[in-house]
Design a protein around this nucleic acid. Sequence first.
DNA 1: AAGAAATGTCAACAGGTGTTGGCCTACGCT
DNA 2: AGCGTAGGCCAACACCTGTTGACATTTCTT
Lengths: 190, 190
Amino acid sequence: MTQGKPRRSDATRAAILTAARERFAADGYERATIRAIAADAGIDPTMVMRYYGNKEKLFAAAAQIDLRLPDLTMVPPDQVGTRLARHFLERWEHDETMAALLRAAATNQGASHRMREMFATQLVPVVAVACPDPAQAPARAALVSSQVLGAALCRYVLRLEPLVTMPADDVIAWLGPTLQRYLTATGPAV
Amino acid sequence: MTQGKPRRSDATRAAILTAARERFAADGYERATIRAIAADAGIDPTMVMRYYGNKEKLFAAAAQIDLRLPDLTMVPPDQVGTRLARHFLERWEHDETMAALLRAAATNQGASHRMREMFATQLVPVVAVACPDPAQAPARAALVSSQVLGAALCRYVLRLEPLVTMPADDVIAWLGPTLQRYLTATGPAV
DNA sequence: AAGAAATGTCAACAGGTGTTGGCCTACGCT
DNA sequence: AGCGTAGGCCAACACCTGTTGACATTTCTT
C-alpha cells in the first residue's frame, strides 16, 4: 500500500533525504539551504524541488520520526523510568533526525507542530499504560517530554558541559528516577 | 564606570533593543531581520547598524541576561529545589529575553555560546553552595539546566499542551523535587 | 554666531534565497 | 527501431538579506 513502483530515481531521492537530515540537524531549518543539501547529495538543486515540491515538504519528509517506544506493560513498574530514559538516549544517540527536528522546532512552525504531534500520538499512549490514571497521561507525558527534550537540548544542541562528555549510563541513571516520578508519582492536580 | 554620558539617542537605542528582544524571541535569530526590528522601533535600519555595529552585536546586546539567582545559603536545604524552580519560572514568565536566547541558541553559535557562559558564570556558583561537594557543581548545574530549559522549551517555545496551560504552581510542584534531587542526591559518578 | 559632532534619511550594493521554465539525455516500453 | 517519458542540468527570475556610503538636519560646544 505505502509502497509504489520502484523508480529509477530512488537512489537520488534517498541521497537527498540523507543530506537533508544532516543539514537540518547541523544548521536548523532556515540556515540549511536547498543548494547546500543538493550539493551534499551531489545533484542539482532543481531535483529537490521536483521530488519534494518545496523546502517545507522536504523538511516534512526528512523529519519523519518513529520514536519506536517500547511497550511499557512488559516492563516492571518500578523500572519504566530508567527504561524510557535509556530508550530515548539511545534513540537520540543514533539518529540525527531527532536533533534536526529539535533544532528546527525552535524557530519553524511546521517543525514545532510536528513535534507536538509526535509526542501526542506516540508518547502519550505509551505513558497512558504506565501511569495510574490514563486521564493524566497527557500531563505526565508533557513532563517526561520536558526532561527528555531538555537533556537532548543541552547535550546535543547547546553542547553544555559536562553533560556532553558524561557517559550515557550516568545520564540515564540521573534521568531515570525523574521520569519514573513523572510517570507514577502522585503530583499536583492529582 | 559602566555608565557614560546620557546621549540624545538613548531613547532610540532603547527602542531598538526592545524591538530586537521581541523579534528575536518571536522569530529566532535568522528570521528576525534588522529591517523588521527597525520598523518596529519606528526608525531606519541604518540606525541599528550605527549603534550596534552588526546583527550579531545587536543580538549580544539584546540577549544580555541576568538570571538574578537567589542566594541558596539563605534557603532551608530541603527547599532549594522548589525555590529554584519558582525563581526560574517567574523569571521566564516575565522576561521574553530568555525565550529569545533559547530560540536563537538552537541555531546560532554565538547564542549557544552565550547560553553556556550564562550557566557557567551564574548557575554553577549558586549550585556550588547548595550541593554536598562543590566539585560536583558543574554536573549538577547541567542537570538542573536540562530540566529548566526543557520545561521552558516545551512551555514557551514548542507550546506543548498541557504544559502551556498548566498553572505555574503546578509546574513548580512537579519540577521542584527533580531539581532538589539533582542538587543534593547522591548519583552516579559520586 | 560659527564650527563640530551627533542624529537621521535615502538609495544602493553585493550576495544569497527559494523557485521556475527550458532543454538535453538516456532509459523503458511496444 | 522508434517513441514517450522520466531523470538531470543550466540559466534565470524575483525577492530578501546584511551592510555601506553620501547627504541633510539637528543639537552641542566654543
